[in-house]
Amino acid sequence: MIVAVASGKGGTGKTTVAVNLALSIENVQFLDCDVEEPNAHLLLHPKVSRREPVYIPVPVVNEQLCDYCGKCSEFCEYNAIFVSSNKILIFPELCHSCGGCAIVCPKKAISEEQHKIGTLNFGSSGDVELVYGELEVGEPLAVPVIKAVKKQMKPDGNVVLDSPPGTSCPVIETVKGSDYCVLVTEPTPFGLHDLKITVEVLEDMGIPFGVVVNRAGIGDKKVYEYCREKDIPVLLEIPYQRDIAEFYSRGVPFSLEIPEWKEKFRTLFERIKESVGK
């Protein structure tokens, strides 16, 4: 079963929930798709056994052939090419690798070169197999790196996907194809606002989902009221309590230290499994 863990905003404890879930079930692969700021490995402390670069093709120009007609730059929707009367510049960090410029160039002056945009890290921590992607600093394209991470998926077992926060393309890329999505939120007006946006996206995508309330006890009851109205299951509440916070600050997943939480995450997983019929 493939479970994505997402949240409408950063800082809700999404990664904590994803890691604790993964540590509480068997035969599991953890894919950290938050490639802009991967941090599951900071909780899982894996031994990284292998790294692999992620490339995308970007155009290069043979200036011997180019006559600076400007057709490529006119074509490029992402403004990644600049042409003046005697110079042509390509900005690889803006290029989306559509390949169009090479096709429109009348002089056949454009070819493709591999440009590194990220790295895949493979490792394991106890029984959890971990793959996490890392976007190169300054590179804007998270989606190709997320795709590369998801290619490593072993769908025969259980898979936990840690999504980036928000509802932008990288989130959709991550959640796409999951059997279930766990939405982590906090019981505050901000949490509710972002939760609603994420719920709309998931409803559009047709992916079943439920909510985990983190830092339960702070804020108000609005998140619960919303879930009741919309018939969204509240799968788990993690209270705002000192020992959990302390384990977090030491980089220790709390389900490893407090066995009853391992049990709770396992129950959560069984419940999801039942609800999607797997």
Binding site: K14, T15, P165, Y248, S249
Partner: peptide, 14 residues
């Protein structure tokens, strides 16, 4: 702007 999270990191998750 893309990559804005790099410049304004979110608070720690817990």
């Amino acid at each position: 702007g893309r990559g804005w999270r790099r410049r304004y990191p979110p608070p720690p998750p817990y």
